[in-house]
Design a protein around this nucleic acid. Sequence first.
DNA 1: CTTTCTTTGACTAATTCTGACTATAATTAT
DNA 2: ATAATTATAGTCAGAATTAGTCAAAGAAAG
Lengths: 155, 155
Amino acid sequence: MQGKNISDIIEKYLKEMIAEDERVEISRSDIASHFDVVPSQINYVIKTRFTIQNGYVVESKRGGGGYIRIEKVKLLDNIDILDTLINAIGDGLTQREGKAIINTLVLNDLITDNEADLVLASINKQTLSIGNKLLENEIRANIMVAILDHLRYKS
Amino acid sequence: MQGKNISDIIEKYLKEMIAEDERVEISRSDIASHFDVVPSQINYVIKTRFTIQNGYVVESKRGGGGYIRIEKVKLLDNIDILDTLINAIGDGLTQREGKAIINTLVLNDLITDNEADLVLASINKQTLSIGNKLLENEIRANIMVAILDHLRYKS
DNA sequence: CTTTCTTTGACTAATTCTGACTATAATTAT
DNA sequence: ATAATTATAGTCAGAATTAGTCAAAGAAAG
Protein backbone atom coordinates (compact mmCIF):
# COMPACT_ATOMS: atom_id res chain seq x y z
CA MET A 1 0.00 0.00 0.00
CA GLN A 2 3.03 2.27 -0.25
CA GLY A 3 4.39 4.20 -3.17
CA LYS A 4 5.72 1.41 -5.26
CA ASN A 5 3.59 2.18 -8.23
CA ILE A 6 2.53 5.49 -9.68
CA SER A 7 -1.14 4.97 -8.82
CA ASP A 8 -0.27 4.82 -5.13
CA ILE A 9 1.73 8.00 -5.44
CA ILE A 10 -1.09 9.83 -7.13
CA GLU A 11 -3.48 8.54 -4.50
CA LYS A 12 -1.26 9.88 -1.74
CA TYR A 13 -0.90 13.22 -3.49
CA LEU A 14 -4.65 13.66 -3.84
CA LYS A 15 -5.34 12.58 -0.28
CA GLU A 16 -2.87 15.13 0.99
CA MET A 17 -4.72 17.81 -0.90
CA ILE A 18 -8.00 16.63 0.52
CA ALA A 19 -6.61 16.48 4.04
CA GLU A 20 -6.17 20.22 3.80
CA ASP A 21 -9.32 21.22 2.03
CA GLU A 22 -11.93 18.49 2.58
CA ARG A 23 -12.91 19.01 -1.02
CA VAL A 24 -10.71 19.45 -4.00
CA GLU A 25 -11.15 20.24 -7.64
CA ILE A 26 -8.56 19.05 -10.10
CA SER A 27 -7.93 19.10 -13.81
CA ARG A 28 -7.48 15.56 -15.03
CA SER A 29 -4.93 16.49 -17.67
CA ASP A 30 -2.94 18.66 -15.25
CA ILE A 31 -2.56 15.85 -12.73
CA ALA A 32 -1.80 13.40 -15.51
CA SER A 33 0.97 15.49 -16.98
CA HIS A 34 2.32 16.36 -13.53
CA PHE A 35 2.91 12.66 -12.91
CA ASP A 36 3.62 11.94 -16.55
CA VAL A 37 0.91 9.36 -17.04
CA VAL A 38 -1.93 9.10 -19.52
CA PRO A 39 -5.07 10.95 -18.43
CA SER A 40 -7.15 7.84 -18.08
CA GLN A 41 -4.88 6.67 -15.30
CA ILE A 42 -6.42 9.36 -13.14
CA ASN A 43 -9.76 7.69 -13.71
CA TYR A 44 -8.24 4.41 -12.64
CA VAL A 45 -6.88 5.88 -9.43
CA ILE A 46 -10.22 7.45 -8.61
CA LYS A 47 -12.22 4.38 -9.40
CA THR A 48 -10.07 2.11 -7.28
CA ARG A 49 -9.20 4.40 -4.37
CA PHE A 50 -11.83 7.09 -3.97
CA THR A 51 -14.97 5.03 -3.61
CA ILE A 52 -17.97 5.80 -1.44
CA GLN A 53 -17.04 2.85 0.75
CA ASN A 54 -13.89 4.72 1.56
CA GLY A 55 -15.79 7.90 2.18
CA TYR A 56 -15.30 9.84 -1.02
CA VAL A 57 -17.81 11.36 -3.37
CA VAL A 58 -16.64 12.25 -6.85
CA GLU A 59 -18.25 14.53 -9.41
CA SER A 60 -16.94 15.76 -12.72
CA LYS A 61 -17.69 17.92 -15.70
CA ARG A 62 -16.35 17.67 -19.25
CA GLY A 63 -15.75 20.38 -21.80
CA GLY A 64 -14.33 23.85 -21.35
CA GLY A 65 -13.65 24.55 -17.69
CA GLY A 66 -14.08 20.87 -16.93
CA TYR A 67 -12.94 19.37 -13.64
CA ILE A 68 -12.97 16.41 -11.33
CA ARG A 69 -14.13 17.17 -7.82
CA ILE A 70 -13.35 14.85 -4.94
CA GLU A 71 -15.03 15.32 -1.61
CA LYS A 72 -14.38 13.57 1.65
CA VAL A 73 -17.60 12.75 3.47
CA LYS A 74 -18.31 11.53 6.96
CA LEU A 75 -19.46 7.95 6.90
CA LEU A 76 -22.19 7.19 9.42
CA ASP A 77 -21.61 4.67 12.15
CA ASN A 78 -24.38 2.17 11.80
CA ILE A 79 -24.15 1.30 8.14
CA ASP A 80 -23.72 -2.45 8.32
CA ILE A 81 -27.37 -2.77 7.51
CA LEU A 82 -26.76 -0.87 4.27
CA ASP A 83 -24.11 -3.34 3.18
CA THR A 84 -26.40 -6.18 4.03
CA LEU A 85 -29.22 -4.74 1.98
CA ILE A 86 -26.99 -3.94 -0.98
CA ASN A 87 -25.61 -7.45 -1.02
CA ALA A 88 -29.11 -8.85 -0.91
CA ILE A 89 -30.19 -6.78 -3.91
CA GLY A 90 -27.72 -8.18 -6.38
CA ASP A 91 -28.58 -7.22 -9.93
CA GLY A 92 -32.35 -7.26 -9.78
CA LEU A 93 -35.13 -5.97 -7.53
CA THR A 94 -38.89 -6.35 -7.77
CA GLN A 95 -41.27 -3.64 -6.63
CA ARG A 96 -42.34 -5.81 -3.72
CA GLU A 97 -38.76 -6.29 -2.58
CA GLY A 98 -38.13 -2.60 -3.03
CA LYS A 99 -41.04 -1.71 -0.80
CA ALA A 100 -39.72 -4.06 1.84
CA ILE A 101 -36.34 -2.36 1.79
CA ILE A 102 -37.89 1.08 2.02
CA ASN A 103 -39.91 -0.14 4.95
CA THR A 104 -36.78 -1.33 6.68
CA LEU A 105 -35.12 2.02 6.09
CA VAL A 106 -38.04 3.86 7.68
CA LEU A 107 -38.12 1.49 10.66
CA ASN A 108 -34.42 2.10 11.22
CA ASP A 109 -34.87 5.86 10.98
CA LEU A 110 -32.60 6.04 7.98
CA ILE A 111 -35.22 7.92 5.97
CA THR A 112 -38.39 9.83 6.82
CA ASP A 113 -41.91 9.01 5.70
CA ASN A 114 -41.79 11.75 3.12
CA GLU A 115 -38.50 10.53 1.73
CA ALA A 116 -39.92 7.03 1.60
CA ASP A 117 -42.84 8.28 -0.47
CA LEU A 118 -40.49 9.90 -2.96
CA VAL A 119 -38.37 6.80 -3.29
CA LEU A 120 -41.49 4.72 -3.70
CA ALA A 121 -42.64 6.96 -6.51
CA SER A 122 -39.27 6.49 -8.18
CA ILE A 123 -39.17 2.72 -8.09
CA ASN A 124 -42.85 2.28 -8.77
CA LYS A 125 -43.91 -0.28 -11.36
CA GLN A 126 -45.59 2.29 -13.59
CA THR A 127 -42.66 4.67 -13.37
CA LEU A 128 -40.14 2.09 -14.49
CA SER A 129 -42.41 0.30 -16.90
CA ILE A 130 -40.49 -0.18 -20.13
CA GLY A 131 -41.81 -3.50 -21.38
CA ASN A 132 -38.88 -5.55 -20.15
CA LYS A 133 -39.26 -7.05 -16.71
CA LEU A 134 -35.63 -8.05 -16.38
CA LEU A 135 -34.33 -4.63 -17.31
CA GLU A 136 -36.95 -2.99 -15.12
CA ASN A 137 -35.76 -4.96 -12.10
CA GLU A 138 -32.18 -4.15 -12.92
CA ILE A 139 -32.88 -0.43 -13.05
CA ARG A 140 -34.87 -0.64 -9.84
CA ALA A 141 -31.89 -2.38 -8.25
CA ASN A 142 -29.55 0.35 -9.48
CA ILE A 143 -31.76 3.05 -8.04
CA MET A 144 -32.06 1.33 -4.71
CA VAL A 145 -28.33 0.75 -4.45
CA ALA A 146 -27.65 4.39 -5.32
CA ILE A 147 -29.99 5.46 -2.54
CA LEU A 148 -28.47 3.07 -0.04
CA ASP A 149 -25.02 4.29 -0.97
CA HIS A 150 -26.15 7.84 -0.42
CA LEU A 151 -27.38 6.95 3.04
CA ARG A 152 -23.87 5.93 4.02
CA TYR A 153 -23.00 9.50 4.78
CA LYS A 154 -24.49 12.73 6.01
CA SER A 155 -24.36 15.71 3.66
CA MET B 1 -21.29 26.33 -11.05
CA GLN B 2 -17.65 27.40 -10.85
CA GLY B 3 -15.95 30.27 -12.57
CA LYS B 4 -13.33 28.70 -14.78
CA ASN B 5 -15.21 29.25 -17.99
CA ILE B 6 -16.71 32.47 -19.21
CA SER B 7 -20.23 31.06 -19.42
CA ASP B 8 -20.24 30.42 -15.67
CA ILE B 9 -19.03 33.94 -15.05
CA ILE B 10 -21.75 35.44 -17.20
CA GLU B 11 -24.29 33.21 -15.48
CA LYS B 12 -23.16 34.47 -12.09
CA TYR B 13 -23.26 38.05 -13.26
CA LEU B 14 -26.81 37.76 -14.52
CA LYS B 15 -27.99 35.95 -11.41
CA GLU B 16 -26.58 38.68 -9.24
CA MET B 17 -28.56 41.22 -11.22
CA ILE B 18 -31.69 39.12 -10.87
CA ALA B 19 -31.13 38.61 -7.16
CA GLU B 20 -31.56 42.34 -6.77
CA ASP B 21 -34.36 43.01 -9.16
CA GLU B 22 -36.26 39.73 -9.65
CA ARG B 23 -36.52 40.67 -13.30
CA VAL B 24 -33.91 42.09 -15.53
CA GLU B 25 -33.68 43.45 -19.05
CA ILE B 26 -30.38 43.31 -20.87
CA SER B 27 -28.96 44.14 -24.24
CA ARG B 28 -27.37 41.06 -25.72
CA SER B 29 -24.60 42.93 -27.47
CA ASP B 30 -23.79 45.01 -24.37
CA ILE B 31 -23.31 41.94 -22.22
CA ALA B 32 -21.35 40.24 -24.98
CA SER B 33 -18.93 43.08 -25.40
CA HIS B 34 -18.65 43.57 -21.63
CA PHE B 35 -17.33 40.02 -21.34
CA ASP B 36 -15.64 40.11 -24.73
CA VAL B 37 -17.48 37.16 -26.24
CA VAL B 38 -19.53 36.78 -29.40
CA PRO B 39 -23.19 37.73 -28.93
CA SER B 40 -24.46 34.23 -29.53
CA GLN B 41 -22.67 33.11 -26.42
CA ILE B 42 -25.27 34.99 -24.45
CA ASN B 43 -27.90 32.83 -26.08
CA TYR B 44 -25.88 29.79 -25.08
CA VAL B 45 -25.73 30.90 -21.45
CA ILE B 46 -29.44 31.55 -21.40
CA LYS B 47 -30.32 28.32 -23.12
CA THR B 48 -28.25 26.23 -20.73
CA ARG B 49 -28.75 28.10 -17.46
CA PHE B 50 -31.94 30.11 -17.53
CA THR B 51 -34.49 27.57 -18.64
CA ILE B 52 -37.87 26.97 -17.09
CA GLN B 53 -36.32 23.95 -15.42
CA ASN B 54 -33.99 26.38 -13.71
CA GLY B 55 -36.95 28.50 -12.72
CA TYR B 56 -36.58 31.33 -15.19
CA VAL B 57 -38.76 32.72 -17.92
CA VAL B 58 -37.08 34.53 -20.77
CA GLU B 59 -38.60 36.89 -23.30
CA SER B 60 -36.91 38.93 -25.96
CA LYS B 61 -37.43 41.34 -28.78
CA ARG B 62 -35.30 41.88 -31.88
CA GLY B 63 -34.78 45.00 -33.91
CA GLY B 64 -34.23 48.56 -32.73
CA GLY B 65 -34.56 48.83 -28.98
CA GLY B 66 -34.39 45.08 -28.71
CA TYR B 67 -33.76 43.34 -25.39
CA ILE B 68 -33.63 40.09 -23.51
CA ARG B 69 -35.71 39.95 -20.37
CA ILE B 70 -35.06 37.32 -17.73
CA GLU B 71 -37.50 36.76 -14.93
CA LYS B 72 -37.34 34.45 -11.97
CA VAL B 73 -40.58 32.65 -11.30
CA LYS B 74 -41.88 31.43 -7.98
CA LEU B 75 -43.56 28.05 -7.90
CA LEU B 76 -45.69 29.08 -4.95
CA ASP B 77 -47.18 31.98 -6.85
CA ASN B 78 -48.15 29.91 -9.87
CA ILE B 79 -48.68 26.26 -9.22
CA ASP B 80 -49.31 25.72 -12.94
CA ILE B 81 -45.57 25.82 -13.25
CA LEU B 82 -45.59 22.18 -12.18
CA ASP B 83 -47.67 21.44 -15.27
CA THR B 84 -45.36 23.56 -17.37
CA LEU B 85 -42.42 21.57 -16.08
CA ILE B 86 -44.11 18.24 -16.73
CA ASN B 87 -44.91 19.43 -20.22
CA ALA B 88 -41.36 20.53 -20.80
CA ILE B 89 -40.13 17.12 -19.71
CA GLY B 90 -42.18 15.35 -22.33
CA ASP B 91 -40.82 11.86 -22.87
CA GLY B 92 -37.15 12.55 -22.23
CA LEU B 93 -35.04 14.24 -19.58
CA THR B 94 -31.27 14.62 -19.41
CA GLN B 95 -29.41 14.49 -16.12
CA ARG B 96 -28.59 18.13 -16.47
CA GLU B 97 -32.24 19.11 -16.89
CA GLY B 98 -33.17 16.86 -14.00
CA LYS B 99 -30.66 18.50 -11.72
CA ALA B 100 -31.99 21.90 -12.70
CA ILE B 101 -35.53 20.91 -11.81
CA ILE B 102 -34.54 19.42 -8.47
CA ASN B 103 -32.60 22.54 -7.64
CA THR B 104 -35.61 24.66 -8.46
CA LEU B 105 -37.83 22.50 -6.26
CA VAL B 106 -35.47 23.02 -3.34
CA LEU B 107 -35.28 26.76 -3.88
CA ASN B 108 -39.05 26.89 -3.82
CA ASP B 109 -39.28 24.81 -0.65
CA LEU B 110 -41.20 22.02 -2.33
CA ILE B 111 -38.66 19.45 -1.21
CA THR B 112 -35.91 19.43 1.40
CA ASP B 113 -32.18 19.13 0.77
CA ASN B 114 -32.23 15.53 1.90
CA GLU B 115 -35.12 14.65 -0.36
CA ALA B 116 -33.33 16.36 -3.22
CA ASP B 117 -30.23 14.25 -2.63
CA LEU B 118 -32.26 11.06 -2.77
CA VAL B 119 -33.97 12.06 -5.99
CA LEU B 120 -30.63 13.10 -7.42
CA ALA B 121 -29.21 9.69 -6.62
CA SER B 122 -32.19 8.12 -8.39
CA ILE B 123 -31.89 10.03 -11.63
CA ASN B 124 -28.12 9.99 -11.72
CA LYS B 125 -26.46 9.07 -14.98
CA GLN B 126 -24.60 6.12 -13.49
CA THR B 127 -27.70 4.86 -11.77
CA LEU B 128 -29.79 4.79 -14.93
CA SER B 129 -27.01 3.76 -17.25
CA ILE B 130 -28.28 0.93 -19.41
CA GLY B 131 -26.46 1.53 -22.65
CA ASN B 132 -29.37 3.24 -24.35
CA LYS B 133 -29.42 7.00 -24.04
CA LEU B 134 -32.95 7.41 -25.33
CA LEU B 135 -34.37 4.87 -22.93
CA GLU B 136 -32.31 6.30 -20.09
CA ASN B 137 -33.78 9.76 -20.66
CA GLU B 138 -37.24 8.29 -20.90
CA ILE B 139 -36.92 6.53 -17.56
CA ARG B 140 -35.50 9.65 -16.00
CA ALA B 141 -38.46 11.58 -17.35
CA ASN B 142 -40.86 9.03 -15.88
CA ILE B 143 -39.23 9.29 -12.47
CA MET B 144 -39.27 13.06 -12.49
CA VAL B 145 -42.89 13.24 -13.57
CA ALA B 146 -43.81 10.76 -10.85
CA ILE B 147 -42.07 12.98 -8.31
CA LEU B 148 -43.75 16.13 -9.59
CA ASP B 149 -47.14 14.43 -9.57
CA HIS B 150 -46.53 13.31 -6.03
CA LEU B 151 -45.69 16.87 -5.01
CA ARG B 152 -48.85 18.20 -6.59
CA TYR B 153 -51.12 15.84 -4.72
CA LYS B 154 -49.29 16.60 -1.52
CA SER B 155 -49.97 20.33 -1.58
C1' DC C 1 1.88 -20.65 -13.67
C1' DT C 2 -2.09 -18.24 -12.72
C1' DT C 3 -4.46 -14.48 -11.07
C1' DT C 4 -4.90 -9.82 -9.95
C1' DC C 5 -3.53 -5.18 -10.37
C1' DT C 6 -1.54 -1.43 -13.15
C1' DT C 7 -0.58 1.10 -17.30
C1' DT C 8 -1.66 2.61 -21.91
C1' DG C 9 -4.07 4.43 -25.77
C1' DA C 10 -7.76 4.48 -29.13
C1' DC C 11 -12.29 5.69 -29.23
C1' DT C 12 -16.38 8.08 -27.16
C1' DA C 13 -19.10 11.70 -24.78
C1' DA C 14 -20.19 16.16 -22.90
C1' DT C 15 -19.68 21.11 -22.65
C1' DT C 16 -18.15 25.45 -24.24
C1' DC C 17 -16.93 28.78 -27.75
C1' DT C 18 -17.25 30.87 -32.38
C1' DG C 19 -19.00 32.74 -36.56
C1' DA C 20 -21.78 32.71 -40.65
C1' DC C 21 -26.35 33.08 -41.82
C1' DT C 22 -31.27 34.19 -40.66
C1' DA C 23 -35.25 36.75 -38.61
C1' DT C 24 -37.57 40.69 -36.80
C1' DA C 25 -38.44 45.51 -35.46
C1' DA C 26 -37.63 50.43 -35.82
C1' DT C 27 -36.14 54.28 -38.48
C1' DT C 28 -35.18 56.80 -42.54
C1' DA C 29 -35.56 57.83 -47.38
C1' DT C 30 -38.39 58.05 -51.56
C1' DA D 1 -47.41 54.57 -47.92
C1' DT D 2 -43.62 51.87 -49.39
C1' DA D 3 -39.08 50.66 -49.70
C1' DA D 4 -34.51 50.67 -48.02
C1' DT D 5 -31.50 50.82 -44.22
C1' DT D 6 -30.11 50.11 -39.65
C1' DA D 7 -30.28 47.78 -35.29
C1' DT D 8 -31.19 44.14 -32.66
C1' DA D 9 -31.70 39.10 -31.40
C1' DG D 10 -31.94 33.78 -32.89
C1' DT D 11 -30.25 29.43 -34.92
C1' DC D 12 -27.22 26.03 -36.04
C1' DA D 13 -23.31 23.55 -37.04
C1' DG D 14 -18.51 22.97 -36.42
C1' DA D 15 -14.20 23.66 -33.73
C1' DA D 16 -12.07 23.48 -29.32
C1' DT D 17 -11.69 21.74 -24.80
C1' DT D 18 -12.26 18.93 -21.37
C1' DA D 19 -13.38 14.02 -19.11
C1' DG D 20 -15.03 8.78 -19.51
C1' DT D 21 -14.87 3.91 -21.18
C1' DC D 22 -12.99 -0.22 -22.34
C1' DA D 23 -10.01 -3.65 -23.60
C1' DA D 24 -5.45 -5.13 -24.32
C1' DA D 25 -0.69 -5.24 -22.87
C1' DG D 26 2.52 -5.37 -19.05
C1' DA D 27 3.90 -6.04 -14.19
C1' DA D 28 3.41 -7.91 -9.66
C1' DA D 29 1.70 -11.13 -6.37
C1' DG D 30 0.47 -15.65 -4.85
